[in-house]
Simulated scan of single mutants.
Amino acid sequence: MASDEPEVTTVTSKGQITIPSSLREQFGLEQGTKLMVVPTDYGLVLKKVDLPSVEEFQQRVKERADTVDVSPEDVSRLVHEARGDNE
């Protein structure tokens, strides 16, 4: 259960913030964890993005293979773009 106590952090010159260790532990945030930043009328909300496992992703691709005309190269490119990888 989330604590109601607010935590304060500072934005660096590069736009980075440090999430306090107690919150990183509470929400399972490790190095490399992807977070979505959602603007709302009340401010910004951070949402942990849980990416599917390789096996789950492969199953999703198989399920859609007959209905979508996408090459393996397209899939690879789209995955890299979504992950923010520099190919």
Score class of each variant (00 low, 15 high):
M1A: 07
M1Q: 06
A2V: 06
A2P: 04
A2E: 00
D4Q: 11
D4M: 05
D4Y: 06
E5G: 02
E5C: 07
P6K: 01
E7Y: 07
V8D: 02
T9P: 01
T9Y: 00
T9Q: 01
T10K: 07
T10I: 11
T10Q: 04
V11L: 04
T12H: 02
S13M: 04
G15A: 06
Q16G: 05
Q16A: 09
Q16N: 13
Q16L: 03
Q16I: 05
I17F: 02
I17E: 00
T18P: 01
I19E: 00
I19A: 01
P20S: 04
P20Q: 03
S21T: 12
S21H: 03
S21N: 07
S21F: 01
S22V: 15
L23Y: 08
L23E: 03
L23T: 09
R24W: 00
Q26Y: 00
Q26D: 11
Q26P: 03
F27K: 08
F27W: 06
F27P: 01
L29D: 00
L29H: 05
L29K: 04
E30A: 10
Q31D: 11
L35D: 01
M36F: 06
M36T: 12
M36L: 15
V37P: 06
V38L: 14
V38G: 05
V38N: 09
V38I: 15
V38S: 12
P39F: 02
P39A: 06
T40G: 10
D41K: 14
G43V: 08
L44H: 08
L44N: 08
V45P: 07
V45E: 10
L46E: 01
L46A: 09
K47V: 14
V49S: 04
V49L: 13
D50E: 09
P52T: 11
S53Q: 08
V54E: 05
V54H: 08
E55Q: 13
E56C: 10
F57P: 03
F57I: 07
F57R: 11
Q58S: 15
R60C: 13
V61G: 06
V61S: 09
V61T: 13
V61A: 12
K62M: 08
E63P: 06
R64A: 15
A65Y: 03
A65R: 12
A65T: 12
D66M: 05
D66R: 07
T67A: 14
T67P: 01
V68W: 03
V68D: 03
D69Q: 08
D69W: 03
D69C: 06
S71R: 11
S71L: 11
P72K: 09
E73W: 02
E73L: 12
V75R: 10
V75G: 10
S76W: 02
S76F: 04
S76K: 14
S76Y: 07
L78R: 13
L78G: 13
H80V: 10
E81D: 14
A82D: 01
A82V: 05
R83C: 09
G84E: 00
G84N: 01
D85S: 11
N86K: 14
N86I: 15
E87F: 10
E87C: 07
E87P: 15
E87K: 13
